[in-house]
Every structure is written in structure tokens, then in C-alpha cells.
Write a protein that binds this DNA or RNA. Structure first.
Lengths: 336, 336
DNA sequence: TTCCCCCGTCGAAGCGCTTCGACGTCACGC
DNA sequence: GCGTGACGTCGAAGCGCTTCGACGGGGGAA
């Protein structure tokens, strides 16, 4: 193994000069740097990661904790992970993969052994048990999603309120005047994360602002429930022409139910959803939708961490603007 | 930060004794060990990963290289990654996530900087450009899949030949006498990996052994091609009652085509496939299938690496036995 | 009893790097 | 002409751990 002293000898300088030439932490004459770099190339020198970590107390590794829970959309997780790795590499960092399964002990382990410099957590719950731990660790972290109480921590996620609003604005612009929101199962509004409520807030704010008639319906994650909600909707709002769905599990059954009830999508009814693109695209009628921008979330999460590692202050909350993709399920209202 | 000297002082022993108590590399009296362990708990000691890596030239980290190519089934990759992490943890190792994108340079980097002790590569191609590199690295590796020439390297994968045989045996046991294999697109038999050919070998061996009439049809990954193959099949083998499909993309269209041609599955035609369980389960008629056992592959890959790290010899090739899951698409032949 | 060896422990020497203080040199301002 | 920095470089001191050789003491064999 070729080490820094070999390079130093070969270039006719001291080891510290090689180190400074590499890190740029002290001025080095252009000529010396050239010589050092040539020696490095010629000898094929690679600094030993462990030695570097020991001496500098920086491992240049980030921990990424991925969820295992069922009900998490796998491609989204994967896309996110890839974007974290790619962005981390741009900042000369590597990524250590941890599973949720290891729990708090795993986080403490990689942090306390100085295996990693910082942590990224996915799938954060409202009352996530890891919050106190994160606060007590001596390394920075970023969470994907918003817990109930995030004081002193850094969070990032899609701006779900804006997403709710954007869906409504889209329908309003198409001329729809009577709309409904089909939301998550009731229990989601309690447990898990705050995002469900925020969609409702956005939805309501936008319908008010646009003077639309509207209702909100939580819906169980079962086809039968979808059918029931569809019937109820048509009974209560016979003039309904626009629906926003924030519930991946019932999107397809709901559309089926509407069509069985004699409404064509988008002819009689426009549907927009907040769900992964994959789902929206795969349906018989591709659905106009807003997706969680996983690649962007990953990238931004890493960048937040880098700033924290550099000692900069970062905002506690980062909300990513929603982007709506128009597909076949929305159309201008057939003005009579 | 509490370090090994703190523990040593607290326990009234020397640092080396603490180290040996932890690693077990030298005998330590039961009593001393107890005392050391108590001190460790009391002080909350965690060995510094970098220091450990530097002194022992073992980082206890494995690299996992995941593919990004489209056409790779994401849930399978994810399942595999999770199983690698879980198994690695059981052996006191962590997992560094790399993307294929970083290429050979990435592999060389993590190996040469001693960031990782060993590597696992997914999605290995027949003529994979990384093969020479792997041979030249001073750390062990395991590949998922078989390249054309794997001398001196370690590979693991599903036993595709046995999978082909198992599908046929299943059909034969159900009384089917005339069967066909619908395989991958023609180009797959050339490029990529050897697994496509091996399925054919297994299929043929088993039909011969059982005295079945059979044909083999490569098939493009397009619904229209599926339709064409279905028609051709019925024309050439009017008595056909069993089909093995090794082509994820056309499984669904193929079944649709058969049904449109008047054959009911499984009433008139039994279908078995080699494909991810997710796909097999999601079809209108859930398909009897053999899946790539990703969790098992991941586990076994890590265990192979551990043995190599321990200096043991391991077989160059490991073939995992296929497991067939019966679903609704196969039934006994309607003996007239 | 003597010799030998094994058990349990210690001390010291690194592992390969970063970083701090120091030092010589040169350019500049007064 | 001299003080003053800034620049460029060096040497040495660790970073926290593992590991090797050594050593004292006790037990078994001869």
C-alpha cells in the first residue's frame, strides 16, 4: 500500500505538504502542488479512509435509514436512496445504508462510533421515538417528513398544503365548480404524519378562495369503501364534476366505481390525485397527479446536511413546491 | 468522547486487556471480562470506527453496488438490499451503498481507500467490464449473476436450469403432455446473462425426461409479439395445454391473448412463469411461478463474503434451488 | 524438586493521516 | 534599512485503537 510518506518522498516534500496540497487548507505553491499531484498519479496513491477519519474526526460518510414498513411505496424509496447517494458523492461523501429495523440502537451505534458524520431518516412519524435521540446525538441529521414537534431538528418534505391547493386550482381553472376531496383512512389523520391534514387545509383554502362548493371524505383503504364513498358523493353533491384523491389504495377502485355509476372520466368527472407517478401512469385512465419529488427531496436533504456539517444554519423546515403532471383524467367542465 | 483508556482506567486494567476482552483474540479471565464489560456499560464506551479500522485494517463495512438500469425490477433490488444489510449486521458489518453509475472508479475508490473490506455486485453482465478490476482488487467480492467467464471470482444466483425443469415437472405432474416455453427476447440470449439459456436447457431436459412434446419460442417484450406467439403456438401445437413463461413483460399480454383465442386459464391451459412474485400475484389470474429468491440470495452472498474474509475457500458458483409457488393458473389436465 | 509451558495481563509500538506551531523567505511600506 | 505580514513549507505530536513480544505465576510432568 502506498501511503502519504511515499508520495512525500517521491515529490521531495514533507507529508504535511502533501496533505495540505490535497485538502487545500493551507496555501501551497502552484509548482509544488503540480509535483505532488504528479507523484500521486504516478504512485496511485489513495488516502486510507480510516486513518483520515481518525485524524480529522470526519468519516465523510452519511447514514441513510430506509423504512421497511409495508405500505411504503418501494420505488419511491429506491429513487430517493439513489438520489441521496448521487448527491452525496458530488460532495465527496459516501452513504451507509441502515434499515429502520435496527432502530434507535443502530442510529446511536453509527453516530457514537463515528462511523458516519450525519444522518438522513426517512418515514418519520408524528410521534417518532427517535426524535429525542436525534436531539442528543452530536451529529447533524435531516428527516424526511414532519413529526409533531420538530424543534431543533431539520425536516424536509413535499408541501402537502400547496399540493392540495394546486389540485383545486387546476380543477378550478378547468371550470369545475363543485369538487370533493377523498382522503386517507381516518386513522391516518391521527397517527403517522401531519401530511394528511395539510392536504385538507390546502384543499379547503383553495376551494374557499375560488368560491367552489366542496366536501371532504376520509376513506378506508378498501375497494368496498371506495364504492361507498363514490355513491355517497353523488348523492350529496349531484353536481360534482371534480375529485381530488389523496389515498393511493383507493384511486383505482374509486375511478372504477364512478364509471360503474355511469360517470365517465374525464368526460363527466375530472380526477386528480396526490400519489406516485408510477401509479398515476399505470391506470386505465392515466391520472393527473402530484407526486412526491423523491429525487429532489434526496438531493436537498443531502445539501442541508452538508451545510450543517459546514457549520451553517439551515431552516428547520423545508417545503418542496408541488408539481402537477397533467394526464388524461382531467378535462374542462362541459359547460351546459 | 470516552475512549478505551478511560475504560481501562475505570476497570483497573490496561487498554490492551480491554481490547482483548472485546475481541476475544486472547484469553481473558472471566472475572476481568466482567469488570471490563461493566465499565464499558457504565461509561457508555463505543470504539471509534476509524481508529479500529486503522489499527486492524478491517473496516467492517461491505460495499453493495445496486443497478440503476431501467428494466430492473425495483422491489427485487430493494428486497435484496435489505436482506444484505440485515445479514451483514448479524455478522457485525455495515453496508455502504454504491450505484452502478459510479462505475469501476467507485469500486476502486472504496477498495483502495480501505473504506470497505469486501464488495457485492448486483446485475452482473455476461461480459461485465468490472471483472478484471475485481480480480485485481485485494479484497474479496461476490457477484449476483453469472458472467461468461468467472474464473477466480465468486458468483451466486437462482439455479435457472433447475427452475426451467421445475416448471415442466409441475406441469407433467398435473398430466400435461404438450407444453411450450415462451422465453426472453432473442437479444437476451446473446447479451446480458446466461440465465436465459439455462432456462431453456432445463426446460428441454425435463420435457425429454418426461416424454413431453414441446417447443421453445423467444418472444419480444411487446403485447403484439405476445399475441403473435400465442397464435403461432396454437397453430403449431393444437394439443397444447401447458406453457412456461420466462419473460416478465409479456406474461400478462400472453394470457390475455390466449383467453381471447378462446382458451381459459387454467381450464384449457395451465401457465407457469419465472418472474417476481409481485407480478405473478397481481394478475387477474394469479400465476403459479418461481421467483428469484432475493432475500436468500442476499443472505447467502453476505455469508460467502464472510467466509472469504475469514480466509476460507468458497465455491466459485452457488446455485440456489428454485421454489415454485402454486397459484390459480395451473390445474390438472382435463383428461378426455 | 526442577523444568516447561500455558494462561492472563501489560507496555509499547505502530496503523496512516491531519493539524498546530514554528520558521525562513520575500515583498512591501515607511 | 528595518519591521511586518503573508506565504510556503516542515517537523512533531497526536487521533484511538490493535497487536506483538514479554513476563510473572501456577500447574503438570518427569
Amino acid at each position: 500500500m502506498v501511503k502519504i510518506t511515499d508520495v512525500a518522498r517521491h515529490a521531495g516534500v514533507s507529508p504535511s505538504t502533501v496533505s495540505y496540497a490535497l485538502s487545500g487548507k493551507r496555501p501551497i505553491s502552484e509548482e509544488t502542488r503540480q509535483r505532488v499531484e504528479a507523484s500521486i498519479r504516478e504512485l496511485g496513491y489513495r488516502p486510507h479512509a480510516g486513518a483520515r477519519a481518525l485524524a480529522s474526526s470526519r468519516s465523510n460518510v452519511l447514514a441513510l435509514v430506509v423504512p421497511l414498513r409495508t405500505g411504503i411505496h418501494v420505488p419511491v424509496v429506491m429513487q430517493f436512496a439513489v438520489s441521496v447517494v448521487t448527491t452525496a458523492r458530488r460532495h465527496d461523501h459516501d452513504v451507509l445504508l441502515l434499515t429502520q429495523e435496527e432502530g434507535e440502537e443502530g442510529l446511536r451505534r453509527v453516530a457514537d462510533t463515528a462511523l458516519v458524520d450525519a444522518l438522513i431518516l426517512m418515514d418519520v412519524q408524528l410521534d417518532d421515538p427517535r426524535l429525542p435521540l436525534l436531539r442528543s446525538l452530536d451529529r447533524p441529521s435531516v428527516m424526511i417528513g414532519f413529526p409533531a414537534e420538530a424543534d431543533g431538528l431539520t425536516c424536509i418534505d413535499l408541501d402537502f398544503k400547496a399540493a392540495g391547493e394546486l389540485c383545486v386550482e387546476h380543477l378550478a381553472q378547468l371550470g369545475h365548480r363543485v369538487v370533493a376531496l377523498v382522503g386517507s383512512p381516518p386513522e391516518v389523520y391521527v397517527r403517522q404524519t401531519a401530511f394528511a391534514q395539510r392536504v385538507v387545509q390546502g384543499f379547503t383554502a383553495a376551494t374557499d378562495r375560488n368560491g367552489l362548493a366542496s366536501t371532504v371524505h376520509p376513506c378506508e383503504a378498501a375497494p368496498a369503501a371506495a364504492r361507498r364513498v363514490a355513491e355517497q358523493l353523488l348523492r350529496e353533491q349531484p353536481a360534482l364534476t371534480g375529485v381530488v384523491v389523496h389515498n393511493e389504495a383507493v384511486l383505482e377502485p374509486l375511478i372504477d366505481a364512478f364509471e360503474q355509476l355511469g360517470l365517465r372520466v374525464p368526460g363527466d368527472l375530472s380526477v386528480t390525485a396526490i400519489c406516485p407517478d408510477e401509479l398515476a401512469e399505470s391506470l386505465r385512465v392515466p391520472v393527473t397527479s402530484i407526486a412526491l419529488p423523491s429525487a429532489e427531496v434526496g438531493e436537498r436533504a443531502v445539501e442541508l446536511l452538508m451545510r450543517k456539517l459546514a457549520g451553517d444554519d439551515v431552516p428547520e423546515a423545508t417545503l418542496l413546491p408541488p408539481r402537477l403532471t397533467r394526464r388524461a383524467s382531467t378535462a374542462p367542465r362541459d359547460t351546459p
